[in-house]
Structure formats: structure tokens, C-alpha cells
Design a protein around this nucleic acid. Structure first.
Lengths: 131, 131
DNA sequence: TTCCTTGCAAAACTTTTGCATTAAA
DNA sequence: TTTAATGCAAAAGTTTTGCAAGGAA
């Protein structure tokens, strides 16, 4: 996978650790926590520290390579899909499912307060088991 | 303010600490963190512990007296407006502004996955300063 | 009494930071 | 060689928990 290239293009020096994290996260659309990524890498035999995982995820998010989500208050989730989209969230299982933009249409949205503009729309549709 | 009554009606024993927290939060629509509430109460001369503030806020949220929000990953915000509504969020200042339901209209929403139903919709419109 | 609630301190978790060491250009 | 990134451990911030003491019914 051409992760090195993707990192260079974002002005990120492609070190071994960063390439491995990118390799996990950018291989397919997914939602992972910092600890999950650390565990995956350690399980795969990588030498990497917790600090590096957090620093790298923050760096990737800052550069727009991934997106950080706040769905439950418990921890940050990192979404490798940076194209605009929304989410289903099942609080019981913790599952997070992408909702493509065309499946949601707003026929009315409020005007932002004076001097402000809309930077983005975070939509989470909370799910519950049907009775 | 008739906070005692409101608590009893929810099956919550109206102790001194709970009544004071309800007095702050339910006096007007607002968004406060646990630490802010603790600080307000302490400044007003109340004898109350951090544990009680957290336990009480969790209890209130569980009983539907307040609503817990996850807008940024940093901490939980408690919203005294439990009627359905949405939010503007200015990440620069941290400001959180209510958006009434009628100001947003969905002309299209995705069907929930099989066996699931929609429990709620969390909409956060992120704001940025206009250039 | 009996049960619930509180306060305190400690623990648990997630995330950030300081600094010496290591790796990249 | 020069600069930036890493690892480790410690710190920081938020939230939860264990338990003795206090308060309500």
C-alpha cells in the first residue's frame, strides 16, 4: 500500500510508526480508538509507544488524513473516511455505521450566528433495538 | 423554585445537594460541565463533594431530567433542555447554542438497519469565524 | 433501624507532556 | 550533522468507585 506517498503528500515525514498506523487505518473505511490501534500494532509485533500512537493520530487528524469523532463521551474515535458523511450509533453495542451523504437531505437549516459560517455538520442517528 | 417536587416526581429523593444542583441546572436552559457546577456550588458556600456532583448528574440524566452531550471529546456537557433540539458549536470559543427543532427539516433520512429503530438524532452544526 | 446518600480519597481511564535517545533527511 | 520523531514514564484531566460516616424514612 502506498502509505508513504500519502503521508509525504500531506507534508508528514513517513517514519516506520506512522506508516504502520496509516497502513491499518487507511486500508479500509473504519472507526478505531487509539488503544485499539496500539493493541493491533503490538499484536502484530510492532515496536511503538502509546505516546506515538496518540501523537500520530492527532497529527493525521490535523492534516485531514483522518477524522476524529465524538459520539460517546468515553473516548475519541478515528474515522478513516474523511469524505463528508454521517453516522448511525448503537449505544448498546457501541457499533458505528457510516451513513452516506445522499441518504440525508436537509430541506431547512438555521442561519449561523452573525460573523460565523458553517464549518461542518456532525449528525449521529442513535439506534435502539426494535421491540 | 419547585425543584423538590420535580425530583420527587422522577422518583429521586430530594436531598439538599440534589436540590441545589437542580436549582442551578433547571432554572434556565443552559450547558454546564460537572466541574462548573461544582465550582458554582462551592462559590455559593455549599458543602458538596465532586463525587456527589458526578453521581447526581448521572442520575438526573438517567431519569431524563437533563441530557448529556458529547460535542468535543474533552468532557461531558449537561443540557437542562431535554426537549428535542439541536446545537451550534463554535470550537474556537467552546460556545454551545441551542437550535430549535423547527429550524431544521430533514426531507430524507436513512432507514435504520434491520431490527433497529431510531432512538434520537444528535445534530451539531460546527461553526467557524467568517473571514 | 434500615436503607439511601454523602464525602473523601484513591483508583481508573484517556490523553498529554518532558526529556533523553533514536531515526530520518 | 541537523532536525524531527520516538519511547518511556510521569503528569494532567475527567470520571468512577470503595467505604466509613451521616441523614432520611
Amino acid at each position: 500500500m502506498g502509505c508513504e506517498r500519502q503521508l509525504s503528500d500531506c507534508g508528514i515525514r513517513p517514519t516506520a510508526q506512522r506508516v504502520r498506523i496509516a497502513g491499518i487505518l487507511l486500508s479500509a473505511p473504519q472507526h478505531r480508538s487509539a488503544e485499539q490501534i496500539l493493541a493491533s500494532l503490538r499484536a502484530a509485533g510492532a515496536r511503538i509507544s502509546k505516546a506515538t500512537v496518540y501523537n500520530t493520530l492527532n497529527l493525521f487528524a490535523e492534516r485531514g488524513l483522518i477524522r476524529q469523532l465524538s459520539v460517546d463521551g468515553s473516548r475519541a474515535w478515528f474515522d478513516s473516511n474523511v469524505a463528508p458523511h454521517y453516522h448511525f450509533h448503537d449505544e448498546a453495542s457501541g457499533a458505528l455505521i457510516d451513513v452516506p451523504v445522499p441518504e440525508v437531505e436537509f430541506s431547512r437549516l438555521p442561519d449561523p450566528p452573525a460573523g460565523m459560517q458553517v464549518a461542518g455538520i456532525d449528525l449521529v442517528i442513535r439506534l435502539r433495538k426494535k421491540l
